[in-house]
Design a protein around this nucleic acid. Structure first.
Lengths: 302, 302
DNA sequence: TCACTCTTGAAAGATATTTTCGTTTCGGCC
DNA sequence: GGCCGAAACGAAAATATCTTTCAAGAGTGA
């Protein structure tokens, strides 16, 4: 019995079909059809028996209705219903455009933050100058040593980059102390790289070491949200991070950090590509070494 | 340990969940999960028996997999699948599925990384248990003090959270040294909060302080990519970060960091909401204080 | 190698769906 | 008004599907 119902289980057209077919339905079937059309999600959660009870009819009637609507049986109607419900669900855009409010439920906070960070990523990727990025990558890959400066939230980004570069066998530092940064910077010379990460582009503690490095002939890179800020004076290459609106509950640091991290990741992957021969085994080795730091039994999980 | 995954049958988070849970699955279950993730629509059309045959396993395994993914049974998984299929139908993901290659031009690297991190954010948001999140937020907001543990890349995330909490006037620490972490943890007591951040969930240096905090009666939170890993033993609340495929050039650390940061941001904003009266002025004050650290002239920008 | 645990599928058991079939209802006709 | 037939309907049997149990097999560490 290959059957093959001619009706392609219509997805969204269900409500329409119900209206069209209603006249040719018996009273009980109409009740079922109406229930299904008015609350697809709810009905999708019910079994034949449940729907029969809800509509005050019998299982047989429910099945007959499903057939009339063009499905082989109730099971398939139910599947279609679930799909319909999901569509409605997703269609109802949560209106994430609004800012985060003090009384937003936690689920909204999650949605808004995620959406916002996604937006930041897209903006950053779109605004990134690949020529500058490529030049920076080339410089780092060839450098004897790379210093990364950053304070506060940007300091963490600086450390992130440093950790990654170290992992592929390059020499990198992210001095936490501004004074140390300057004294380190003095040691840099042509062929070395100094990277300053600062959203505002005006953080003195970060500009200063970059200036020193610049004056000592190192290749300098600025990762900043303000391409016209003081820090760029001493930068051979400027990588622009995106700036998004901030608000009381969503400090700028949040999206600038996301943006900076993307830039830093791009730098890293670019460098890793260039040093593939040495980077790949180095990465593998660091995984290896790390395995021992995890609890021997590895836990109950597999 | 009342277990019972509180995971509400997530609609769109399925692919993400499959990735997250894959490591804790047996071989046959992975086959089933993979089939389901790669072709939701097709699988929705199959019965347990059909899917079992397709994947060369048994009905029992299929049901087990459905359970692991957070559904009461196969029937419900199937319903979710149908919904997912409908969503995909309408959404049509463009998907830059290819991995980053050694010879990708830099522009592609940027695009792929950005896309990938966006994906990670979406997955994380979809898979985050808002109940757990809310509970964690409440605990932090009310805590006398909050300790955050993390090593390596996760350590930076821990510091990020700490910095933010400090900014709104809460007391937070992120000990960098594992020994310090433990000795600090001893000081925690009921009402205090300890947060462990570890992707693998098996990092001894992070589990240990959490255990100590747990045993001293503190409220403990785990931010991990493995909801069934050892770290969760000592966690009152588990926040799951998403796991995405990694590759040689894109170490897992990259997307897990993105995921962790989103979770941390959500925690922060949630806490800031709850402490709005004190948080708002505190944030304003920290901006104020920071202004002086920027070069006096403020640059030509603006 | 042995003991042990974890994984797995076959089959029994439980539910859900579909079909069958007899009862009820309703409209027309005698 | 009462009788007849067709359609509507639901109860329950029959079937399909899903879930659970259980024992054998695979893999692992001692």
């Amino acid at each position: 019995m290959k059957e093959t119902f001619s009706t392609p289980p219509a997805p969204g057209a269900l409500a329409a079909k119900v209206r069209t077919l209603a006249p040719s339905m018996t009273r009980s079937m109409q009740r079922v059809a109406e229930a299904v059309a008015s609350d697809p999600a709810g009905c999708a959660a019910l079994t034949v028996t449940g729907l029969a009870e809800l509509t005050g009819t019998s299982e047989a009637t429910v099945v007959r209705t499903a057939r009339l609507l063009g499905y082989p049986g109730y099971r398939d109607l139910r599947l279609a219903l679930a799909g319909l419900a999901a569509q409605q669900q997703s269609g109802r855009a949560p209106a994430i455009t609004t800012d985060i409010a003090v009384d937003d439920p936690i689920a909204d906070v999650v949605a808004k933050l995620a959406y916002d960070e996604q937006q930041t990523l897209a903006d950053t990727a779109a605004g990134l100058d690949t020529a500058q990025l490529g030049a920076a990558v080339a410089a780092i890959a060839a450098a004897r040593r790379t210093d990364v400066y950053g304070i506060g939230a940007s300091g963490l980004v600086a450390q992130d980059l440093t950790q990654k570069l170290l992992r592929i066998g390059l020499i990198a530092h992210a001095p936490g102390d501004p004074h140390l940064a300057v004294t380190n910077a003095v040691q840099l010379r042509a062929g070395d790289v100094a990277i300053a990460i600062t959203h505002s582009g005006s953080t003195g503690d970060v500009i200063e070491p970059l200036r020193v490095a610049f004056e000592h002939g190192a290749t300098t890179v600025a990762v900043t949200g303000r391409p016209d800020s003081p820090v760029t004076q001493y930068a051979d290459h400027v990588l622009t991070t995106s700036t998004s609106r901030e608000s009381e509950l969503r400090p700028a640091a949040m999206s600038s950090r996301t943006s900076q991290l993307l830039v830093v990741d791009c730098l890293f992957v670019g460098v890793a590509q260039r040093c593939y021969e040495t980077a790949a085994p180095a990465l593998a080795a660091s995984y290896e070494a790390l395995a021992h730091r995890h609890s021997p039994r590895g836990g109950t999980h597999r």
